[in-house]
Structure formats: structure tokens, C-alpha cells
Design a protein around this nucleic acid. Structure first.
Lengths: 311, 311
DNA sequence: GTAAAACATGACAAGTAATGACATGATTAA
DNA sequence: TTAATCATGTCATTACTTGTCATGTTTTAC
């Protein structure tokens, strides 16, 4: 085996072991101790942060975390990594930020100037915009970690009605429109609720759950319809246009030949509240036929406004 | 110089040159032709896709695009790249998708099983959600490219009033809430407008612009206030809460000691339309003091709804 | 159809690098 | 004090790399 290959094997071995003696390496790879010492000198020269302790119980210790074998990327692949990083730009409190900047540095410094220019251009001509909120989400990392580790947690949560303590089992964490959300099973209320991570004030973790629970993908596809309610609406052309731009409804909008359209679908009663504001905005571009609760809600809201701004 | 180092130099040299003869390499690196042949055999064994053509005008040809020198990543760095890729999941028609999957493959296959599990968990517990619209954006790549190359373009654009031909100069492209937007200078209307990339039906490129124009970052910070209008609103506690969650207003919300609050800022008249629906939803949680146009707008919308759903 | 330009491959000697064996010394903990 | 460890040096041996020369093959220009 060539020296380069063996050095690499040893590099990977030692970054895994973190602590070892020369004898162990010699046995592992069937080489003499003298050669091990020589190899370690080489690795050290190559920049591996390794130090030695003499004497009984001594040995070598490696400081870096585990390394992957060297990887050859094409220029385009490197650029694609920068493109992906660009998409994280408008978030705060993200995990891996030190790792990401060290990856950026490693890649950027080995690009040729031509490719550097391309990366610079991507950075200045492409963005993944989010409302760059002033809202801080200091516990994002903690929450992510607990979710990944499948741990149930106690949290202090700032809800509409004040600060509450809750005992929940996270399903996963997702970002939307610059905010982080945590769908989780609430043990007390015995149902799945959606929390905002920025409103979580503290975490206390408990034991790891052994069993599998619903995962994030399943949750996205899962719409609990506890109290099914028929939503039936006629839409003008403009109504169709706007409903198609509303994430929540776009799938249910049917278009007639003349460009007008309608919605006729089943939703959960709990979602009515959320939909009200959409139809408030649409005004006469949407005529609701069912349910009556929604019409009442609209009417009530409209009356509230008229009362407030009476002439 | 060691063989490994020389091989690497040659690898980088040949991936740049794409086509070359053994003699050229021999001259470049001051080694014998025989050795060059041996080296090329080595590189080929290492997986470099290189093929040879015999005879006059023959030579070697390398198939891959430019390679970067091998890079050593730590496990955490690799994981951070997967994390970043995760954020692109809910987009369609993205550029670099082949590159991204090849990077994913290269990295994933050299991770140890423990780290693989971590990546899998990130994939199933973390998401960057967008309304996964049914809307297709086939021209996204083209538009990105033209923007990056600083080219003015002719486009066919599907606007409210039908299909129009436009001559524009792109500023950049950004994603928001699952849709792609193109702010660009419209030569005809002589101002900067915002286009939706999915509504662009075709592109015709023109010449490259030599001069620098506004870039995307500048545009984001640039809010043209043509008709300044004072927005003055009193908010209840709930009003404060909701306004702070509205990207557009969060910066202007001031909170009183008792938890209620107010907004007092200058906005452009053109934005009133956009704000109306927010205050419709807020109802009595927001009392607008100025401008009157906004109050009128709310009242009109409320009346429209009451008329429509008269008992 | 021939010559020139290219790759392909083999053999071998000369040179260079890597290795193991051995020796010696230093440091540390039991 | 002793055993376990790293650190370093020397030297013969082995393994690898390189250049030179030789011989083929393939392709294209003339």
C-alpha cells in the first residue's frame, strides 16, 4: 500500500480515536513503532492538531473532531453549496453557523478567481428573502436538538393568555416566513398543537422516547378534521386569482370556463378563524354560501369596524 | 517533490486544460514522457474520467469540469451542508439540482453510520417550509442567469391586464414564501417594478450591461416614499402582538408600559392598499387615527361585506 | 502510402524514499 | 525504581519512482 493511502487511513483512524498510543497504531496497521512516529510527525506537519504526553499513561491526543476522507468537488458543485448557503441568509439563530462559515472559507479559498466571481454574483443577485424580523429565537438550537433526539420536554410558553407551563412531545421544527414553528403533542390537552419557537421561554428536557411518533412530513400531510365543515364559496376572477395565491386554499380552488370559480371542500371548524381574514379582504370577490359561522364571523368583524369608525 | 503532490498538481492542471498531450505535461513539470504516461494511468485508476486519442492531433481529454483540490471536512461541517440543502427542499425549478444531489451523494457516502443517522434525523425533523405551490417556474434558471450576467431582457409578461411585452433590466431575483420575484427597471415605464418570475412567459436576451446598477441588497433597503403619509394607530395588547408578527409593521410598533401600544410612522400612500387587510383582521384591536383614506378603505370594505350578507 | 505525431507498454538500471531493527534518551505515574 | 510512553538518530534493507531505450499501434497530413 502506498504511503499516501496509509497516511490517510491513519488520519481517519486517529481523528476517530482521539486518544491512542503509537503501539496501538503499529498493531492496527502492522507497521513498526518507528514508522508510526514518523507518520505522526508527517500528519502534524500537515496541520493536524495533535499533541503527545510522555510517560506512563501517555499517548497522543487529536484535537479536531472527526474528519471525512478528502473529497474532490467540481467547481459547479462548490458553487451549488454557496447557493444553498445563500438560502440561510435571512435567518437568525441558526445552528451550524460556525461550521457553515468554515465550509465557506475552505471552499472559497480553493476556488479560482473566475469561480469566485460567480459566487460573488450569486451572493449579490440572488436572495431567499424572509421578513428579517427583530424577533430573537434564542432557544432554536435547543429545541432543534431536543426534537432530533426525540425527547419530551417541559416548556414555559408565552401564549395569548399569559405564560404557561406545558409538557409536550415535539414532532419537528420548521421555518416559515422567517419564524420557527414547533408542532408538538400536548400531553395535557391531549392533542397536537403548533407552537412558535420564539415564544418558548425555557426548556426542561426529560427522558428520550424510544418509540417513533409522527414525523414532520406526516404532520404536514396530516390535517385533523375533527369537526368537518363544508366550505362553499363562489369567486369572481379576481377572487380566483387571490385564492390561488393563498397557500391554504390554492388546492381547493376550481376555475370555471369564464374565469370565475368556486371552492367546495371540507375543512375543520377550528380553521374558520384563520380563513375569516382572507375573506374579509376579498370582500365582494368571494360570496360565501356555507358555513353560516363564517358569514357571521365576517359580519361581526365588519360591524365592529363600522361601529369603531362611526361618523 | 513527492509523487502525491506532483500527481495533485497534474490533476488540477489537466482538469483545467481539458485537452493536452503527454509532451506538454512533461515540459510543464520537467519530467519524462514515460512518467507522464504512468501518472495519467494513476489518475485514471483513481477515477478521473480521462480518455486518449492516438495518432496525430491526438492527446488526452478530461471529461469532468474543473476540480478543486481535495478538501478535508469535519463531520460537523458535512452535516451543516446537509442542513443548508434542507432549506431548499420546498422549492421547485431550482438551479444546481444535479450538483446538489452529487454533493449530497459524495458527502453522505463518506460519512460514518453515526453521522448518517444525524443527517437522516435533520432531514426528518427539520424543514424550511414554503407553500409548496402547484405553480411552475420553468424560466427561473434563465432569469437567474440573465440577472447574474447583468443583461437587459425582453420578456412576455402575464399581468392583470393580459399578456404584455416588456423591456427590463433585472436587479436580482429573490424567493419569498415559495414564489420567485424579479425586481427590475422597466425602460418603458421608467421605474423599478416587481415581477413574478412564474408569470414570465418568455425571454429574449439583449446585450450585457457594462455599468453597475442597483443590486439586490440596495433594493431591499430602498423604499421609495413618493407620497409620504402618516400612519398613526393605537393598539390593544392583542393588537401589539399581532402587529409584531406582521413583517411589514414589526419595526414600527411601539409598546407602552401596560402592554398596549401604537404605531406612528411614515409610509407611502401606495402601501395603504396592502395594509388595509391587516387592520380589517385586527378589528377593534387597532384604532386608526390617521390617515383617513385608510379608515375610509376599511369602512368601505366592511360595508361591502354587510351589504353582501344582509339578513 | 509514407512520415510524423501521438498514445501504449515493457524492460532495466539508477536513484530516491520508506521501512524496520536497534540504540539511546527523556518524561511520567505507579 | 520500574514500566510505559514519546523522541530521535543511525544504518542496512527493501520498495518504489524515474529516466532511457525499445517496440508497437493508431491516426492524420501531405
Amino acid at each position: 500500500m502506498s504511503k499516501a493511502k496509509r497516511l490517510l487511513d491513519i488520519l481517519l483512524f486517529v481523528t476517530n480515536r482521539k486518544k491512542f498510543t503509537a503501539q496501538e497504531i503499529a498493531d492496527e496497521f502492522n507497521i513498526s513503532i518507528r514508522t508510526v512516529h514518523r507518520y505522526i510527525l508527517d500528519l502534524s506537519d500537515m496541520g493536524l492538531p495533535i499533541y503527545s504526553e510522555q510517560g506512563r499513561n501517555g499517548g497522543y491526543t487529536v484535537l479536531t473532531s472527526r474528519l471525512l476522507p478528502p473529497i474532490l468537488f467540481t467547481e459547479e458543485e462548490a458553487v451549488s453549496i454557496f447557493f444553498a448557503f445563500q438560502s440561510l441568509n435571512y435567518y437568525r439563530n441558526l445552528p451550524f453557523d460556525t461550521e457553515i462559515s468554515s465550509v465557506e472559507h475552505k471552499l472559497y479559498s480553493s476556488l479560482q478567481s473566475e469561480a469566485k466571481i460567480k459566487v460573488d454574483k450569486i451572493r449579490s443577485y440572488i436572495a431567499f428573502w424572509n421578513p428579517k424580523r427583530t424577533i430573537d429565537t434564542p432557544l432554536l438550537n435547543d429545541i432543534l436538538e431536543h426534537s432530533i433526539e426525540n425527547k419530551s420536554i417541559y416548556i414555559q410558553y408565552e401564549s395569548k393568555s399569559g405564560i404557561r407551563k406545558k409538557y409536550i412531545r415535539p414532532i419537528g421544527v420548521y421555518a416559515h416566513d422567517g419564524l420557527w414553528y414547533l408542532p408538538a403533542y400536548d400531553y395535557h390537552k391531549e392533542k397536537i398543537l403548533l407552537y412558535r419557537v420564539d415564544r418558548i421561554l425555557s426548556i426542561l428536557s426529560t427522558e428520550i422516547n424510544k418509540d417513533e411518533f409522527m414525523n414532520l412530513k406526516e404532520w404536514f400531510n396530516f390535517r385533523e378534521v375533527k369537526k368537518p365543515t363544508r366550505l362553499h364559496v363562489h369567486l369572481t376572477m379576481e377572487g380566483v386569482r387571490q385564492c390561488k395565491s393563498a397557500p391554504y386554499l390554492e388546492g381547493s380552488v376550481e376555475t370555471n370556463e369564464d374565469g370565475t370559480g368556486y371552492i367546495d371542500t371540507i375543512i375543520d371548524k377550528g380553521e374558520l378563524n384563520f380563513i375569516t381574514s382572507l375573506f374579509l379582504r376579498l370582500g365582494s370577490h368571494a360570496r360565501i354560501l356555507e358555513p353560516n359561522e363564517l358569514i357571521d364571523g365576517l359580519r361581526k368583524q365588519a360591524e365592529e369596524i363600522l361601529t369603531m369608525y362611526e361618523r
